[in-house]
Design a protein around this nucleic acid. Structure first.
Lengths: 244, 244
DNA sequence: ACTATCAAAATAATCGATTATTTGTCAAGC
DNA sequence: GCTTGACAAATAATCGATTATTTTGATAGT
């Protein structure tokens, strides 16, 4: 299956409530497409490894080639799309090796970023963590309703990024954000619910509390374990469900 | 100065010897532009922080908007160009903070990648290192002739990438390559020659020999120091010459 | 049968023109 | 004198059509 169906990939619409101001940088068609495509890829709506036919995509999204290429170009930076001259674009494939690399690098980079955040972060950073944690833990994840999954994913991502947001290193944050994207794709494709032996909510709480208490070793180790467990979990699912 | 002069940024020409085969992926105008722009930015030909006027660039390079945007989009992935919706592109600015982050992250990531390479690399990897080292050390760097600088830079970059090429982690290599790009820009803009108290050639030799001898602690420490010294060096030049 | 070759179809890349947005300027009003 | 608003110029984004490349499929030769 090369192209996605139209279920939720219909023509671009102005579903933004149009608050009138607060330019969040989603103005151009290219930007909107990038967001929609990113979501489509991370959610698994666009199959990993599949070719992206420009002509079909153009019709699906009701846009011209220029913004379509624009949007796709951005997803290349995110590692979600691959490109080859004269051969076009394809959704980045998933693989066991890639999953393991993503996990390993998250352990290295995200933990390092947390360490730096704990060294440099201020009170506002602490407050942001507690808020993100609260919002995340108050949100239920119901496998039956996809929209709750999507919402939980957004808050989960927000929590992890907030945790390391105090590190004062834009490039590092960019790398971590990218790895988180790749990681989330595996979860959303393979993991309907976490395995029973984990209390993910508590894991998040421990990390957050260690962080604001500036207990560096504790918080970093908890985060590392958290990432590692997720990796192991996903690896099992990947092995079970098989990969192409 | 918004646009580069034509000294070496003239219209695109087929200066590739056209070997007839071996497609290295520089076919489209967009690809060629990306290469040329990358070189122009890293070499300092395009001033850091300056706006890139699409219309002027279009005329300078004798191309249409589509491939120009295509090329610029790729440089965004490299961290060499910044973009804002409806405001266009600008050359990524340089700053003390950025230089320090690049140095810190190189210390973290490149050293980690070297460690992994020493754990996983095979004999071919070792051979590639010795070749890259030899070629680098046999190349003189003459501040008077820019083309020798450019050549040395290419070999230097090649050496560092080869060193970590055995790690088996494409994403990590991508991050390191990106950081190396950013780092090289600082060197080419600020550092005509290395300061007298360093024998860079010997530093490279020590790292390489430690690597192939699988003396992990030695090689990693040497690499870390090498990166750190370069950072310190560049920082001094940046402070001396002042930044915008 | 298998492979090589060529033409046609499909697809990607590029162009020139058009539309939309931002930026700069100047005058009117406070 | 300063701000505000309207207009014009500059610039970015998008479109539809054209050109170039790759892929497909049929045919001929071995």
């Amino acid at each position: 299956m090369d192209t996605a169906d139209d279920s939720s990939l219909g023509p671009l619409t102005d579903d933004v409530p149009s608050t009138g101001f607060l330019d969040d940088g989603k103005n151009t068609i290219g930007s909107q497409l990038a967001s929609r495509l990113r979501e489509a890829i991370i959610s698994g709506e666009l199959e990993a490894g599949s070719k992206i036919n420009l002509d079909k995509a153009r019709k699906t999204f009701n846009v011209s080639l220029s913004p379509l290429r624009e949007g796709l170009a951005r997803l290349i930076s995110d590692g979600l799309v691959e490109f080859q001259d004269n051969r076009g674009y394809r959704v980045a494939p998933i693989s066991l090796a890639n999953l393991e690399e993503v996990t390993t690098l998250r352990e290295e980079l995200e933990v390092f970023a947390l360490r730096e955040s704990m060294r440099l972060g201020d009170v506002e950073w602490e407050g942001n963590i507690m808020r993100a944690l609260h919002r995340l833990n108050r949100t239920e994840r119901d496998a039956a309703r996809p929209e709750t999954l999507e919402h939980w994913e957004a808050l989960h991502r927000e929590f992890h990024l907030t945790l390391i947001s105090g590190c004062g290193k834009p490039l590092l944050l960019h790398f971590c954000s990218l790895l988180l994207n790749l990681n989330d794709r595996y979860r959303r494709v393979f993991l309907i619910r976490t395995s029973g032996d984990r209390n993910v909510g508590q894991e998040h709480s421990e990390i957050a509390q260690g962080a604001v208490a500036r207990d560096v070793d504790y918080a970093c180790e908890k985060l590392r374990q958290h990432i590692h467990r997720t990796g192991t979990n996903l690896r099992n699912h990947l092995a079970t469900k098989g990969i192409a």
